[in-house]
Amino acid sequence: MNRIQQAFQKKGKDLLNIYFTAGYPTLDATVPLIKAISAAGADLIEIGMPFSDPLADGPVIQQSSTVALANGMNMRVLFSQLKNIRQEVAETPILLMGYLNPVMQFGVENFCREAANAGVDGVILPDLPLDDYVAEYQETFRKYNLRPVFLITPQTAPERIRRIDELTDSFLYLVSGPGTTGGQNTQAEGVQEAYFQRIEAMNLRNPRLIGFGIGDKASFQKACQHAEGAIIGSALIRALEGVEDAPAAATRFISSVLK
């Protein structure tokens, strides 16, 4: 059983997955933020690998990525920062989220080996298609014991959801509705509920986390009614903007969601 599965088994419900962008707000904030986020009670941590053109992300994460890149963040720097992370944070699952091109240029094998050495548990690459994952990446991911996490949207067909469910032992990332990260949910109440219930009724192997547009205690608790937990990213990034002490700001933010 991997660390992601253990986290779900231990808690069962109301899991909080916190996303932040590596190298934001400062280059060296990465490790202090991981420690603070874990200590504040997040159950999973998703580290964003900044990319110049993050298509699935809204303006907040794009801006944090631009700042992180200007700060000098890249794959080599990130992996050197994460080198001893498992001595600091032993149990909290750590996932890397990013886009395919920087991973391709770094080399898939190199990427997976470095991630495994650092103690990373899962990888989210939204622009990696399922077929390409199976054909070209799955073997390497398995070799290094990394779990892929795939996104599911209200438009994803049931047979495709089944296929995604078969391809991983981690969790399913339920995109709450149409839009990029950090957006407002503009769907009619019943539409979203019906979508979550439809997925719930499929009795899938993997637990589910709801993401996109979750940003405070109320939206977190509401999401937790329909899944094992939820993912917060843009709202945390906003809480880090312009602060002196990023770890303290992250702690305050997470407390405000969980209290």
Partner: peptide, 20 residues
């Protein structure tokens, strides 16, 4: 069928765009 000209092409899109 998957949109490749030699090694170039394909459809590297997030799941949100897949149905479209």
């Amino acid at each position: 069928e998957r949109g490749y000209y030699g090694q170039f092409g394909g459809a590297f899109i997030p799941e949100m765009l897949y149905p479209n």
